[in-house]
């Protein structure tokens, strides 16, 4: 405490004063955590609605059971495609790994890198690119899933399952899209002038957002896809 010696009133040294924060933490990081807390309630509302309406659709097709339309005799198989979604879940998990590596690379940019492994791990461009690529792959899976569902006969208008499913996963997909745009912007900055330790905060808050989107998918994958 003595190292923070001050005159009688409050005159923190010039320069320090301007960046002074009560907790010593940066504003933006507190802001993003408050935002993430708020997003918890957003997805809680969406997930609750999906679960409340589960099994209440008057007509099919249904997520986990086959269904035959009584008026046309047309047969629909269970809609959800677990193998494909398992693959996309894995892709999103791996994107989180790439994201933490990107952050570590930005933070350690100034450290010397000798071996090939250190150079690969230390390349923020590579890992930002990988994160964005894996995120885009996830979106590709989702686009494939949505179009094949529509082809199989369930759209957002078909029944309660369709409405709540497409809205929930669509909201998640929109969050992933925003994250990919954010990643691409950051990647462009990296190519333009290189990201260093002073950018670590900006990459950190982006990473927090990205991981949160991943965490939401963890919940969705179990609650929507696996639990019958």
């Amino acid at each position: 405490m003595d190292s923070f010696a001050m005159p009688d009133v409050i005159v923190p040294a010039a320069g320090v004063e301007h960046t002074y924060t009560t907790t010593g933490l940066p504003h933006r990081k507190i802001g993003i955590w408050a935002f993430i807390g708020s997003e918890c309630m957003l997805f809680a509302s969406l997930i609750s609605t999906y679960l409340i309406y589960k099994g209440r659709s008057v007509v099919g097709p249904f997520p986990h059971e086959a269904w035959t339309d009584p008026s046309t005799g047309h047969h629909f198989r269970a809609i959800l495609n677990i193998p494909v979604t398992s693959a996309s879940t894995f892709v999103l998990l791996m994107s989180s790994l790439a994201m933490v590596l990107a952050l570590a690379a930005v933070e350690n940019r100034d450290k010397p890198k000798v071996t090939m492994g250190e150079k690969i791990l230390g390349s923020s461009k590579l890992w930002l690119f990988m994160t964005a690529l894996l995120g885009t792959t996830f979106l590709g899976f989702q686009a494939f899933e949505f179009t094949s569902f529509v082809h199989e006969g369930v759209s957002i208008r078909t029944n309660l399952f369709g409405s709540s499913f497409f809205t929930l996963t669509g909201f998640h997909g929109a969050h992933v899209t925003a994250g990919v745009l954010w990643l691409c912007t950051m990647l462009a900055v990296d190519f333009k002038r290189g990201l260093g330790p002073k950018d670590a905060l900006n990459v950190d808050i982006m990473a927090l957002y990205w991981h949160f989107v991943d965490v939401v998918w963890i919940a969705i994958f179990t609650l929507v896809y696996l639990i019958r």
């Binding site: 309630m41 957003l42 509302s45 969406l46 409405s163």
Partner: peptide, 20 residues
Amino acid sequence: PVITIALVFLLFDRFFGTNF
């Protein structure tokens, strides 16, 4: 966020024909 979602459902019902 909760009313945002409730309103999104209503908006989708009104504009895109969902069934919420």
